[in-house]
Design a protein around this nucleic acid. Structure first.
Lengths: 199, 199
DNA sequence: TCACCGATTGACTGGTCAATCAACCGGAGG
DNA sequence: CCTCCGGTTGATTGACCAGTCAATCGGTGA
């Protein structure tokens, strides 16, 4: 083989970081915590990453690019805005279902941390808002949604609702066990879309 | 006079802290920054507060209790859920209009910082969600809103939308200059309430 | 067998602050 | 004029931790 299995120590570190960040929060995790969790020497973290920040950035970028792709795809698919927004919300909720720790980290440490990491990734984050706004705008153009609401405004409200629900699950404000994510998705999409229907 | 004007150095420090927190974020402001901004000696901050954290806690508590009172009052007032929710959103948007720095600090450093200060104040924050949920529940009971949506669910979606809009203004994702806050309030309430109307 | 080289290790350094504390100031009261 | 005392000052301390770096390991090819 060209390269012996690079042991994927890099991946090992990233995965460990997710767990530690989710447990303690980015700011109160020491680099040594990540190394310990990964079962790896302190210095190795700096072999694969230039800084503690870069670890988080990498985690965010990996996941967020998937979200952007999902929004694009939902937009390209057939169906009205209701179906498209359902796909977007579904993707986000599924992401949480699939890897709660990762979503917790991304939301808490980046998306909602507008003063620190959110600042750095503002452009990427905004791209998601704009993708959703595009879906709304098309819905308005086709007459499926009323036209007197600014699409970006609607997008922010929609995304804000999604993220707040997620936060509620993450921090136990809302019981997650009994909640069926798919049901929540449908309810949310229905409510918002009904509110955006032509009067 | 019993007490000479205690010079209100405490207030001076709190107000200075708002400005500095808003400008630099809680984590990257040193206690010396607060003291400098207030034109006061470093040590005096510790005369009035036990820690840097306590300064932020005080700011949050002061403001949040007003919000809780406003929610209570909106609920007690006459009118349907539409009017009541309009009052709640109006209070929050007005708070931002009146003191953007303070709202920025509260939202960024507490409300959306669920890993650090949000944790400590989770109970207070939840109380706001519950107040809003109560308004929704009453609306359902009176038949003004459809009954198949969990009130807490609707509350989280509503509050999430409000906060996301605020965040958009705070961080320039959405242009604030041209936006009339009252218009935004009406639009938001209309959309959500239309979505929650009986089908 | 040996030289090479990237992966891996972890002790150490430098800088940053939060919090402390001993000293100082000025007004009230005697 | 002196004492007392709470408000005020800012230099100092002690802890913490990100990032560095020189040393070691182990696989590969000659």
């Amino acid at each position: 083989m060209a390269q012996a299995p690079p042991a994927d120590k890099r991946r090992l570190i990233l995965d460990a970081a997710v767990r530690v960040f989710a447990r303690q929060g980015f700011h109160s995790t020491r680099v040594s915590d990540i190394a310990d969790e990964a079962g790896v020497a302190y210095g190795l973290v700096y072999h694969y990453f230039n800084s503690k920040d870069e670890v988080l950035n990498e985690l965010f970028t990996e996941r967020w690019s998937l979200l952007l792709a999902a929004i694009e795809e939902a937009d390209r698919a057939d169906g009205g805005p209701r179906e498209k927004l359902g796909k977007v919300a579904g993707f986000i909720f599924d992401s949480y279902r699939h890897d709660p720790d990762l979503m917790k980290v991304i939301i808490v440490e980046v998306t909602r941390a507008a003063n620190s990491f959110g600042q750095i990734h503002l452009e990427q984050i905004r791209r998601a808002y704009e993708g959703i706004a595009r879906i709304v705008a098309e819905g308005q153009a086709s007459g499926a949604l009323r036209g007197d609401v600014d699409p970006m405004f609607a997008s922010m409200a929609f995304y804000g609702a999604v993220e707040q629900l997620l936060s509620g699950w993450i921090f136990g404000t809302i019981p997650a066990s009994e909640t069926d994510f798919d049901e929540a998705r449908d309810l949310l999409v229905t409510t918002i879309c009904d509110g955006l229907e032509p009067r």
